[in-house]
């Protein structure tokens, strides 16, 4: 089963929409509450990253009996140094985004803690592709 969501850069009012839809879907499928919580945290942070940093993006959700795979691909500035971006507390968010309480440099580490596998690939001035896998029996 596959579902796709579009995300617009800068549109904070709809941030969280995909996360909320995926949460509903996983509840309907009777996935363990702990796993749903992990997926929701990871996906929300990833969704907000597209809104806060990219121009636009697509979230592809693939469900099979064992796991959920989330692929978030955006067109945007890209990440020049992924190791640095993964450091807790490092952020390139704008002052406006920080004032909203985002941009504390907690997003990517939060994502990593909540999934079983995380792949982050990025090309500067092109965009970023984040692949997340969470197993249901973990």
């Amino acid at each position: 089963m596959q579902v796709k969501y579009q995300v617009e850069g800068g549109d904070f009012t709809s941030a969280g929409y995909a996360s909320s839809q995926v949460k509903k879907l996983l509840k309907q499928l009777n996935v363990a509450p702990k796993v749903i919580k992990n997926v929701v945290v990871a996906l929300y942070e990833a969704e907000v990253n597209i809104v806060a940093h990219a121009y636009r993006g697509v979230i592809e959700v693939e469900l099979d009996p064992q796991k959920i795979t989330l692929v978030l691909e955006d067109e945007g500035p890209g990440i020049p140094n992924i190791d640095l971006a993964m450091q807790e507390g490092f952020s390139t968010a704008s002052p406006a985004v920080r004032e909203m309480g985002f941009g504390a440099g907690m997003g990517l580490p939060n994502i990593k803690r909540n999934v079983d596998d995380m792949q982050l690939e990025s090309q500067v001035d092109k965009g970023t592709r984040l692949t997340l896998i969470k197993f249901f029996n973990a």
Binding site: Y44, M100, G101, A104, N110
Partner: peptide, 26 residues
């Protein structure tokens, strides 16, 4: 900090904050 709440708050808790935008409800 929204990511702090996202990462560390638990179901059923009351959230005390001065943030007043829509993302708080998300």
């Amino acid at each position: 900090l929204l990511s702090d709440v996202m990462g560390n708050a638990d179901e059923g808790e009351v959230w005390v904050t001065l943030q007043t935008h829509k993302n708080v409800m998300a």
